[in-house]
Simulated assay, not measured.
Amino acid sequence: MSSSFLFPGLSRRTLLKAAGASATLAAAGLPTRLFAADPIKVAAVYTVPVEQQWVSRIHKAAMAAKERGDIEYVYSENTSNSDYERVMREYAEAGNKLILGEVFGVEDAARTVAADYPDVAFLMGSSFKPDDAVPNFSVFDNYIQDASYLSGIVAGAMSKSKTIGMVGGYPIPEVNRLMNAFMAGVKETAPDAKFQVAFIGSWFDPPKAKETAFAQIDGGADLLYAERFGVSDAAKEKGVLAIGNVIDTQADYPETVVASALWHFEPTLDKAIAEVKAGTFKAADYGVYSFMKEGGCSLAPLGTFEDKVPAEVKAMVAEKEKAIKDGSFTVEINDGEPKSS
């Protein structure tokens, strides 16, 4: 195929000059870039529906990048662990330059795929660290402990029984650290609070989460930490309060969800897109881009509870948020399994 067909209006001489300039930059150790107007092809492989909290934030960021014209975006949802490797390979073969996903159950297989496609960038949710042996495989995680801590401050003040129920998916680091940060926040306003902690063994089983929450309410909890879908439904039915995680569901539960710790995946994805476009993508830990100081998380507006949360508690939240952002206060990252107390 001729160059004039690929780039109408550009002469062969102009194209050769451009190619020569790129070669000079590469020889000098400087990154070559795609044309600014060229979106990169991005694919994502999800094991759950895109409506699920965690994945929905990745999907939202990808859709925003697509709407800006930075990327082309395709995705697969509800992909089983046994099928994950095949789908990854198909996307790599299809010419995608960046592949997103969550590989908590298929870590070894995913890294094997990445090794087989060294010209493709992989950015995957993972409990493990990057490995220089697979230089095109980067990891991320939802390090939103800052926002979780702030939501705990609110929760401790809003609970009357000082007994709080917590329903999680699995006791893995990415869940544990948020629960522990939330519990630390609760202790700021309710030092004597008690916790009922349970895990349902699933990332998406709203009926099971709901039943588990009912049991905690029966056990005296008047506020629930809704790490999974289904918990806020139980809270609404029983007339108790809930704290959201990763997404803001207050619009669906206006009299139930007091506050939510929000995850913003945009800083993580935008960094990866920039690296891919610059030709500088490498194995790295993108977890830091979920920190509050990087814009990766926030406490959702109190909305319908704005006038119900005590003024002194809102002042404490504002003070702690400022300290987190300026680095004078650091929320502990505790990946240990939280226990009932």
Rank of each mutant, 00 (worst) to 15 (best):
R12E: 13
I164R: 04
A190P: 06
P171D: 08
G230P: 05
F140C: 05
D119Y: 05
A221C: 09
R86T: 14
S4E: 14
D141V: 03
G9A: 01
A65D: 05
F229V: 10
K325M: 08
N142E: 09
G9V: 10
Y117A: 09
L178T: 10
A283S: 13
T47Q: 13
W54E: 04
E337Y: 01
G219T: 06
G169L: 03
G69A: 07
L100R: 10
R86D: 12
E227K: 00
W203T: 01
W54K: 02
D146Y: 11
E319H: 06
A114G: 09
G201M: 09
A44S: 15
L178D: 08
Y225R: 02
Y117D: 10
I172P: 01
V106W: 07
G287W: 00
T112M: 07
V120F: 07
P254I: 10
F140T: 09
K322T: 13
E332G: 00
A184P: 02
A92W: 05
V154F: 08
G105A: 12
A28K: 15
K282I: 00
A251R: 09
Y149G: 02
V231D: 09
P207G: 05
Y289L: 11
K162S: 13
V55T: 14
A28E: 15
K162V: 01
A115S: 15
V246Q: 05
L34S: 07
P39S: 09
A272R: 08
K238T: 00
T32Q: 14
N78A: 06
K236N: 02
S22R: 13
V154H: 06
C297Q: 10
A155W: 02
T14A: 15
